[in-house]
């Protein structure tokens, strides 16, 4: 691991100020991606600004038909929250299926979403539910947030403070996971809001994406049969040692139908 300076931020303002003062700083949330990345020397920040001590980045509450979850809430705490389980069980289940128990005890919502790994689980819920990302300076709609492979709309020094997830009528997340890393080879989050449906796919392409054709079909009839004939272009899918493009394209359909069936279950 390269050397860096370490700062423990007192509050949001302090974190942003330290980030701005650093030559090439990075925020440190739970560290479940950051620390392995540093170990592999894939990143060499001059400074790490630890967010763990900032009380304002914690918290979990319901307001205006949404669940607002603090950026530093761990996957384990979101999965264990009775409020989340009651209002958006699909989100609770997604958080409880990230990585493994030890990772869920450290990894955070904000860290996952800011990192925008193309195979991460949380972005599927953010885009699938049409969540709002709150930062230290503005709010960003999920549709404007994910811009590409590990790319987001966040400015360099911008800090996610919380995310608001609208409560749907019904929703579900299904993933075909890599058995070692538990990342999604393909994952689909579907949410029915009554007059419209949202469906987001993770793991399949360079960045998370929606499938408007499936959303329209499901808005007409929310059944697995309604999307049986809808396919995605294999050419646009990821290819790696775990799955080829054709297999991933096929999995998108399978996972979408399983998610719809689970939401109806």
């Amino acid at each position: 691991m390269y050397r860096f300076e370490y700062h423990r931020a007192k509050d949001i303002g302090d974190a942003v100020a330290r980030r701005q003062a650093a030559e090439d700083g990075l925020y440190l949330a739970g560290g479940m991606t950051m620390v392995p990345t540093l170990r592999q020397r894939l990143a060499s920040p001059s400074d790490l600004i630890d967010l763990a001590g900032i009380a304002a980045l914690k918290g979990l509450e319901e307001a205006d038909g949404s669940l607002r979850i603090g950026a530093m809430e761990t996957h384990a705490d979101v999965a264990a929250s009775a409020l989340v389980r009651d209002r958006i069980p699909a989100l609770s289940g997604l958080a409880g299926g990230i990585g493994d128990p030890q990772v869920r005890n450290r990894g955070t919502l904000g860290g996952s979403v800011a990192n925008a790994d193309p195979a991460a689980d949380y972005p599927a819920a953010v885009l699938g539910l049409g969540a709002t990302i709150h930062t230290d300076r503005r709010t960003i709609a999920a549709d404007d947030f994910f811009c590409g492979l590990f790319e987001t709309a966040l400015e360099d020094d911008e800090l996610i403070t919380a995310i608001s997830f609208p409560v749907p009528k019904r929703a579900a997340y299904r993933k075909f996971k890599n058995p070692v890393s538990r990342y999604a080879i393909v994952g689909v989050f579907v949410a029915d809001f009554g007059d419209y449906v949202r469906l987001a796919v993770t793991g399949a392409a360079a960045s998370i994406f929606r499938l408007p054709e499936m959303e329209a079909a499901l808005a007409g009839e929310f059944t697995a049969a309604a999307i049986k004939q809808i396919t995605v272009e294999a050419a646009e899918m990821n290819r790696d040692l775990h799955a080829g493009t054709g297999y991933r394209a096929h999995l998108v359909g399978v996972m979408a139908r399983r998610a719809v069936e689970a939401a109806n279950g």
């Binding site: 423990r8 440190l28 392995p36 763990a52 128990p101 030890q102 990772v103 005890n105 450290r106």
Partner: peptide
């Protein structure tokens, strides 16, 4: 009180 992987945590954390 929580199980964690100490190879993915900095001592300062």
């Amino acid at each position: 009180g929580r199980a964690v992987k100490s190879c993915a945590i900095l001592t300062v954390q």
